[in-house]
Design a protein around this nucleic acid. Structure first.
Lengths: 394, 394
DNA sequence: GATATTAAGTCCATAACGTAGACTAAATCA
DNA sequence: TGATTTAGTCTACGTTATGGACTTAATATC
């Protein structure tokens, strides 16, 4: 931000401008790019030339749209050369994906592993193997990776402050991975929000609510994440729903997580005994939720009640979130996605008591690998925003 | 953001870089500026020349710090030419201040007026008169103005959505004022937060809580305001403290405002009857609060209880705010400032139940005209960030 | 089918700006 | 007094975008 502008950064900026336009606007001719960016045709031609040399864009066949005049040559992102790696460590699985510059997923690998109270170096070794195989197979030049972890992260220092469900504290996962590309680390909810941004409904401003064992939220504004001072923003799970409510492991009382977290839901539905670490009926995680959905479909009263209560609490927490953050819409993801038909009604009723227009509640359109998709997409976004660093004639 | 970079914008950017450094780092020689910005001495000299021509900076006498070598000429912001206007319309008063480029307040004018359920054009006329007199007297070239109003604003369109305590709805106050300079409009809490930023403790990241009739909050991040999608962010007053609590005029139940808003406080302390529009003992506004402070000092039990309750509720709301926004510190302003000794204890106790380290609670160091100071400072910041628009040789 | 028209893309001369290093100015040190 | 050191200016140069002329490749018109 407080860097001087020299000729080279001027060029870098304009290069990013052109590439960004290509990325957003699909295949465009040089003339259309000049129009869109406000640069002259001459300049655009030179910039596109550099991008072609760097294999970041390709020329398609001439565009003949039936108009008079010489047809333009469409320039579009090239998926053949550069790629990005998305990684995820979560409680029940490891996940890897390789994405090309066009944001197409080239390859996915998921490995079911129980990482509860695991040793971080072991997990890292497994993920490393998975990642290297995937990169090898995809055959792209990987420019970087982002790793999603289930806990608060300081992205600037790559520090995972703590992942309660893994039993990890103050770890630098990027160093453990030791991959031959730069690895950034971020929170799972944040990256799932980015996954929703790129592969979901397409809204540019929303609050993504990630229902997992804990409840997180990623706030996306104009296509960028809002992180807070220390990267702890979006801890929706510990918003107070009832100050006289039951105690929470965070030290507080009446946190949302105690009403709408996965364990609370399963307990209320009678699928998980009230001792925290017991094994639930139908298994924890996806399986437990699948059982819950079955019972909801069957009209089980206890299950329906559990969702009613959870939805209402979620709505109350969202009132606070809307008043403080003013998100465009609210997207429910994670385990809230399959439960959406039963949660959204009560949540919307709570939420509607807000003064001004309440934002819409939507289901996440992405799915369980939102975080690793978002992670890879984040790398791609960086590449498109900084094409100069990938130019061959550095 | 998606503008092409040409030679002129390159220059504009570097000009802003140099001026920003002068603004932050106090008087600096050209050599020191070259060091700080990363530009060459030649370039800095040329840029400083332009800034001198525009009378945005002045040269002081040579700096002789006892070192060897030719002494440098200190360049500092000039307070003699450009200035900014800060305006505020609030429930009990109108306020105007003129500030020069160095952020020194040149002139303040406050006029006590009861603006409850007033006619907007009348109020605008009074403020216009006050503003024109102030500008005339200050004798500076005014580059712009910002107006603080007590209600949610869309700053991009200059639209005040509603000011319940004034009885206004969907108004464009800048047009009513009809001043000969561009007038931007913003929320009072936001601008008070900026006032705190420039004239308070100096922290770059904090949540400013503005206790007035309503309770607002301005979130400052790295010296910039966070506004939310529609500019409604920071409505701390309607964060839910108790979902079973009393109804609020916003349509919700158990909002913070019902526990810690000025009227709620005065009512709980027995200084305001429970009919909303009755006249309180000792007067509403500052006078009412002054009476409350007196009673607190005297050890009045009802007053102490009122603050205890309000503080506790405030703390609960702040737990949610901290979890969602992750502010660096929390600054209490408005009527919360004089009540700080009695509020901060209970609030901090509620807040300390948060999992990770709770941010510090501080008193606002600014005072009641934080909003108009922040408004003027906002204009100055714009001028310093865009010096090219004020260059004579346009 | 030949020619005019239209639009895409390239070429070339020019202008703006920052850089690098030489140069001048003004102080302290010995 | 002269050497040294630092501030600031001057000059030649390189990079980049611009604007308009030019080339290319299509459609439209006769």
């Amino acid at each position: 931000m407080d860097q001087p502008v020299r000729h080279d950064s001027m060029r870098a900026r304009n290069l990013a401008l052109v590439l960004g336009e290509v990325s957003r606007g699909g295949p465009l001719t040089r003339a259309a790019l000049a129009e869109a960016t406000g640069l002259t045709k001459t300049t655009v031609s030179k910039l596109v030339g550099d991008l072609l040399d760097a294999r970041m864009v390709t020329e398609a066949a001439a565009v003949r749209d039936g108009e008079r005049g010489r047809p333009g040559v469409a320039v579009s992102l090239s998926g053949d050369h550069l790629g990005a790696l998305g990684l995820e460590i979560n409680v029940d699985y490891l996940s890897v994906c390789v994405m090309d510059l066009t944001r197409s997923v080239r390859l996915r690998r998921t490995q079911a592993v129980d990482n509860r109270y695991s040793i971080s170096t072991d997990v890292a070794r497994k993920l490393r193997k998975l990642a290297l195989e995937a990169v090898d197979e995809a055959g792209l030049t990987i420019g970087g990776a982002v790793l999603a972890v289930p806990g608060p992260v300081d992205p600037a220092r790559g520090l995972l402050h703590g992942a309660p469900n893994l039993g990890w504290r103050d770890i630098r996962p990027a160093e453990l991975l030791d991959l031959p590309v730069p690895v950034a680390v971020d929170n799972e909810a944040n990256l799932a929000a980015l996954g929703e941004l790129w592969f979901g409904s397409g809204a540019p401003d929303f609050l993504y609510v990630s229902g997992e064992i804990g409840i997180g939220a990623g706030l996306v504004f104009g296509g960028a994440l809002f992180r807070g001072t220390r990267g702890f923003a979006g801890e929706l799970g510990h918003v107070v729903v009832d100050p006289g409510g039951p105690p929470c492991r965070c030290g507080g009382q009446g946190c949302l997580e105690r009403y709408a977290g996965q364990d609370a839901l399963l307990q209320a539905a009678g699928l998980l005994p009230f001792g925290t670490d017991a094994e639930p009926v139908g298994g924890r995680g996806p399986a437990g939720i699948a059982t819950l959905v079955e019972r909801l479909r069957a009209g089980d009263g206890r299950a329906l009640d559990a969702c009613e209560q959870a939805g209402r609490a979620l709505g109350v927490a969202l009132i606070s979130a809307v008043n403080l953050l003013d998100p465009g819409t609210i997207v429910l993801g994670g385990v809230f996605a399959p439960l959406f038909p039963w949660l959204s009604g009560p949540a919307a009723r709570s939420l509607s008591r807000i003064g001004h227009a309440a934002p819409r509640l939507e289901v996440s359109a992405v799915g369980p690998d939102a975080a690793s998709l978002g992670a890879a997409a984040q790398v791609i976004e960086q590449m498109i925003a900084n094409p100069a660093t990938h130019l061959s004639r550095a």
